[in-house]
Design a protein around this nucleic acid. Structure first.
Lengths: 145, 145
DNA sequence: TTGCAATATGCAACTGAGTTGCATATAATA
DNA sequence: TATTATATGCAACTCAGTTGCATATTGCAA
């Protein structure tokens, strides 16, 4: 379990300044579990009275990724999203409302990692990671259609 | 197994004109198995002496998708790619050379579909499809690095 | 085979996510 | 609190994909 103190420590160790925006980004990461796009972060910050330029967000997010604090979660809808490095989840995206549902299923996680190992061996890939997303229509959107 | 005759029949039935570009697109789909981006199609057509504008390709590809002839295969690198509807495969993408390797593994396909059914039930999604891609470094790129 | 109408194509100009160079503002250190 | 290196913002860019409209081509009927 990460805390703000642990994360700011990482910044300090790397001689990276702890600015208002960066601290706010870390707080958001700690309180949100769903992957967030740059625009999600921007809106959330605005809500807290912080106006951050998108360029800054892109740069800070890239920084936090290289420091191993957050990771990019790839989706196929054209928006890059990010989450705390410690969460590795798969997601189900509702194609109607674009909501991202986090899938919490140990058996699924295990199965996917075993598929990854299998594929790495069969196709002689030096390193391998994966993206798995489910696309569908959530209950709520289904009822309203 | 699809043939050019079957596919042009589909166009005719839908009162859609069979133009040089469309016929060439179908031929390419029939002889290629890997998913192709719009720019892949454009290069391939140029090679056969056909200069097609990207706008035309986007529109024709969309048309062929709605006719059920091709399908979009989503990747997370920002390029949409397309393949014949009958192929449903998963892919391994080399992050170095961007080559797409088709994965032909019956056991993997079965496993993934079972994960899909499982997830649909657990999360009450009305309909569900999935994207699974593996990302890594292929043998050739690994040797050259 | 030709002429006509409907459809396909190309062009130019646009959208929107993400990027880059540079000037200004701010955090950390002495 | 002054200094200086780093962070932020701005403007202008890139590039995949989209849209409106003018022109070219296809399929059909005569």
């Amino acid at each position: 379990m990460q805390t703000l103190a642990i994360l700011t420590q990482v910044l300090k160790k790397n001689k990276v300044r702890i600015t208002t925006i960066r601290k706010a980004l870390l707080m958001i990461l700690l309180t949100r579990t769903k992957p967030m796009s740059v625009y999600d972060f921007q809106k959330r910050l605005q809500h807290e009275g912080i106006d951050a330029h998108k360029v800054t967000l892109y740069r800070d997010i890239e920084l936090l990724c290289t420091l191993g604090i957050m990771r990019e979660v790839s989706f196929t809808d054209g928006f890059r999203r990010y989450e705390l490095e410690e969460d590795h989840h798969h997601h189900a995206v509702c194609t109607a409302c674009k909501e991202v549902f986090e899938i919490n299923d140990q058996a699924l996680e295990k199965a996917v990692f075993s598929l990854e190992r299998r594929t790495k061996k069969r196709y002689h890939f030096a390193s391998l990671s994966h993206n798995l997303e489910f696309l569908g229509v959530c209950t709520r959107c289904f009822k309203h259609s």
